[in-house]
Design a binder for these strands. Structure first.
Length: 859
RNA sequence: GCGGACGUGGCGGAACCGGUAGACGCACGAGACUUAAAAUCUUGCGGCCGAAAGGCCGUGCGGGUUCGAGUCCCGCCGUCCGCACCA
């Protein structure tokens, strides 16, 4: 019943949104009080890198987090929902080189821009807790914890082979090398020997692995990825005695194996090219030197590894089999053995390892099967070019014959262990986290190098070690190394001339504890306050991209444990609930010349279902390409500012939450945004129509049921982060309200339903909700209103309609009272005309009644 | 190669513990209002047969379990993701 005399003005987002943002800020309703005694809820989205402008991925991420924050607030929780900036990193230095701006200036300008953009989204953030990791007030505490970790033995400095990114001129951690390339630069990574600082993440390998089981609100996928990354295996370190000692090395080679059961199938030993014994042997052996050099050359390029043949070099050395001193095995240097894993040496069992088999076949070493699959005749079991790596019965293995592989493993382990030849060893794939970066724009490592005292920690009282402000980027490399004034300092221990560590910390260190800092970012002297951090952590709901499944999420788990060890927190796990959202993707467009065209320049038509695209300027045809992740290179990006300017933040948020399940990619389409914009206006019309309703109330009960059903469903789905379903429930309620207004809803019932609709949209479209709240004449702010309780009595129907199947096919419906028992349902079903016609006087062979679900007759 | 996830209309997707497949939205068609367009409203929309009532087919493919399978089991095919010489 819309009032036709005075046409309703359209909802004006441009006017309403800043107005409500100001109202929220003034009421300070999103500022969180640590002393508030209500149950806490900490919701956090991964903080952004201040690259310049926010992108649609940010909009999606923060829209989701904001729904949770606003919903939990309405549910009576003391919600912490902070925002900050992951502000150190290479792009600032690249900008400095390209545009001659100071990295700090560049970063803070970006922060200002992006803060404004986030604020225009209407996010319910506590801006009073904002932090930037490049602020000395932040990294001071990171330096403090570095020193604490050092004292606890959780930081070490050692020479190691590291991944060197030749484009970014810095070292990368293993986690930061993707397919042999730097995660940022995409450059092929080289191996270099450097002295570096390491965080001893491997000290926690076992705990990081087993604790994954307790992270029940993490995606299985992420837990599995971390599990594989940590890569635990149980095996044996076995010493093979050399028939003759090697000068400068010793008289035995230790290998690591997870298959000691197959020891009687051994045909050779293989050692890594950079194994110490290989180095000893290479002295004076130019052939071996050449082979080692060749291995190292191939070893740096991932592509080569994929195709590289198994190559070996017979050293001429012989070792004795640990279970039979009369049995000698040749020792090869092989290109497939990694020095970094295990002991850098393996024994080869060709029959039961494909790689060993390839190698043995190439060098004519033969094979002896020692594990026979169940059901296979041992006498006819022969291995030619496919190794058998499964379980079975031991054969050709002397005292092991007849045992299972597991029994044989134990028997060998016990025997060799008893003889002092082998020890059981749990091996991890995970390696220590190298945190040294040869870059300027990062947290300085608080160490001073003194020729007489070695590396000396900077005294806590002298923290922070601040980055020098006046730096030049006119030369490649790290400006800190060239800054003599900054570098040269007296040794804190002996007072002699010394120099600062010029490496800075990996920026992943910065993001490994920011969630803890948010709990009390104002603390000047300490990183955290124990009682505060212990009350807020773990984060109840963390939301971010899947790309951090290993990197950031593993580092943060380590760092939280290290903080626990050093007393800065009492918790072990940083994130109790994790949600990984999908990407924002978009169609790609190309003009006739094959150049990428940005969506803003494309006009789409769809006459008769045939989609066509034209360039808005030239009117020339544009071809529609595949849907891909938004990227600058393909120009398929949509600027959030443009969307907010033309449609408003609520429309952008609503569209982001509609349709696609949040963990999947969402396809950004112009039609979709327009659909969202239409719904914004529709809600506005409905709420106003409800205020003007004047029906006799005939539709009231139906409407109230619909409203409370939506209320219950939306609540349940927000809790499970199924925002696309929330959207569907809200549409259903809007349809019901429309229907009821056309029918005869009373004003009271219409306004109640409109009020519920307003509260349901409030977490997603908060500005529109405030405007509707005011139109409905409700007090205060919708953002501060408690969540309405669903009336359970309205959720159940008195009568239910069940489908009736005959032989599994639906043939009729039967309507029965809600609490009808199986007998009554059966009787009602058999009385149906449609059923009687089929039965034709005969009784059904079987009747299945599932109360509240279905009836199935077998005839 | 190893590990994992997924496969439903023109599209995004829904379907809880095995119980009415396609909710909700987008796109599209027809109609109303309008001089016209936009907006809005009504209506249709998996395929085939039919005027309709209704019937048959249908959740990647082939089998199986079950009164009943998108859902469970076995075997294929395809797509995506992660790891990748890890001993």
């Amino acid at each position: 019943m819309t009032d036709a005399t005075a046409p309703l003005e359209r909802y004006n987002a441009k006017d309403a949104e800043p107005r409500w943002q100001a109202a929220w800020a003034q009421a300070k309703i999103f500022e969180t009080d640590n002393a508030d005694q209500r149950p806490k809820y900490y919701v956090l989205e991964m903080f952004p890198y201040p690259s310049g402008r926010i992108h649609m991925g940010h909009v999606r991420n923060y829209a989701m987090g904001d729904v949770v924050a606003r919903y939990k607030r309405a549910r009576g929780f003391n919600v912490l929902h902070p925002m900050g900036w992951d502000a150190f990193g290479l792009p600032a230095e690249n900008a400095a080189m390209e545009r001659k701006v100071n990295p700090r200036t560049w970063t803070y300008e970006n922060i200002a821009t992006m803060r404004g953009q986030l604020q225009s989204m209407g996010l319910s953030l506590d801006w009073s807790r904002e932090i930037a990791t490049c602020d000395p007030a932040y990294y001071k505490h990171q330096q403090r914890m570095f020193l604490d970790f050092l004292e606890k033995g959780l930081v070490t400095r050692r020479t190691a082979k590291v991944n060197w990114d030749p484009v970014d001129h810095t070292v990368l951690a293993n986690e930061q090398v993707i397919d042999g390339r730097g995660w940022r630069s995409g450059a092929l990574v080289e191996q270099r020997e450097l002295t570096q600082w390491f965080f001893k993440i491997t000290d926690f390998a076992e705990d990081l692995l087993t604790a994954l089981d307790g992270l029940e609100r993490w995606p299985d996928k992420v837990r599995l990825m971390q599990k594989n990354w940590i890569g635990r295996s149980e095996g044996l370190e076995v010493r093979f005695g050399l028939t003759e000692p090697v000068a400068g090395y010793g008289d035995g080679i230790t290998v690591y194996t997870t298959r000691p059961d197959t020891l009687f199938g051994a045909k050779f030993l293989a050692i890594a090219a950079d194994h110490p014994i290989a180095a000893s042997l290479a002295e004076g052996n130019t052939e071996l030197q050449a082979f080692i050099a060749e291995c190292q050359r191939i070893g740096t390029a991932q592509a080569a590894i994929d195709t590289a043949e198994k190559l070996g070099f017979d050293t001429g050395l012989r070792v004795r089999h640990p279970l039979d001193p009369s049995w000698d095995l040749p020792v090869y240097v092989a290109n497939f053995v990694l020095m970094e894993y295990g002991t850098g040496a393996v024994f080869g069992c060709p029959a039961h390892d494909q790689r060993d088999l390839d190698f043995a076949n190439k060098y004519g070493l033969g094979n002896t099967p020692v594990v026979c699959p169940e059901g296979q005749d041992p006498d006819s079991f022969v291995i030619t070019d496919t190794a058998y790596d499964g379980d079975g019965r031991m054969i050709n293995s002397r005292f092991l014959d007849g045992m299972s592989t597991d029994e044989a493993f134990e028997a060998v382990a016990n025997r060799l262990d008893g003889e002092g030849v082998a020890t059981r060893k749990v091996q991890f794939r995970l390696r220590d986290w190298g945190v040294s970066r040869q870059r300027y724009w990062g947290c300085p490592i608080p160490i001073i190098h003194c020729d007489s005292c070695g590396p000396v920690p900077v005294p806590v009282a002298d923290l922070p070690v601040k980055l020098p402000e006046d730096v030049s980027f006119d030369q490649p490399g790290n400006p800190l190394e060239r800054d003599a004034a900054w570098r040269q300092v007296p040794c804190p221990q002996c007072g002699g001339a010394a120099r600062r560590e010029t490496d800075t910390m990996d920026t992943f260190v910065d993001s490994s504890w920011y969630f803890a800092r948010f709990t009390a970012p104002w603390l000047a002297d300490e990183p955290t306050d124990r009682s505060t951090v212990d009350r807020w952590l773990p984060v109840d709901q963390y939301i971010g991209g899947i790309e951090h499944a290993i990197l950031h999420l593993l580092y943060a788990r380590f760092f939280t444990r290290a903080m626990r060890e050093t007393g800065w927190s009492g918790v072990s796990e940083p994130f109790a609930g994790l949600f990984t959202q999908g990407m924002v993707v978009h169609e790609t467009y190309k003009d006739e010349a094959g150049a990428w065209v940005q969506p803003a320049d494309v006009r789409l038509t769809a006459e008769g279902g045939q989609r066509q695209a034209f360039h808005v300027k030239t009117q020339g045809p544009v071809s529609i390409g595949p849907i891909e992740k938004m990227s600058k290179s393909k120009k398929n990006v949509v600027d959030p500012d443009d969307i907010i300017a033309s449609y408003g933040a609520d429309t952008a948020r609503w569209f982001m939450l509609s349709d696609s399940p949040p963990e999947r990619d969402v396809i950004w389409t112009e039609e979709g945004v327009q659909g969202a914009a239409r719904f914004v206006q529709r809600v506005w019309r409905l709420v106003n129509a409800a205020c003007a309703a004047s029906g006799d109330g005939a539709a009231d009960l139906t409407l109230r049921k619909a409203a409370h059903r939506a209320l219950a469903s939306v609540g349940e789905d927000v809790e499970r982060l199924r925002f696309n379903r929330c959207v569907a429930h809200i549409y259903t309620l809007a349809n019901a309200l429309d229907e009821a207004l056309r029918g005869a809803a009373s004003q009271a019932a219409a306004k109640e339903a409109a009020g519920i609709l307003t509260q349901l949209i409030a977490p997603m479209m908060p500005h529109l909700a405030e405007e509707c709240w005011t139109a409905l004449g409700r007090d205060g702010l919708a953002a501060a209103a408690p969540w309405p309780e669903a009336d359970v009595a309205l959720l159940v129907e008195d009568e239910i309609t069940l489908p009736v199947q005959i032989n599994g096919k639906k043939r009729a419906d039967v309507t029965v009272p809600r609490d009808a028992d199986a007998k009554a349902v059966e009787a009602a079903t058999l009385a149906l005309d449609a059923v009687q016609k089929v039965l034709d006087g005969k009784p059904p062979r079987k009747v299945i009644v599932v109360p509240g679900r279905i009836v199935n007759l077998v005839v």
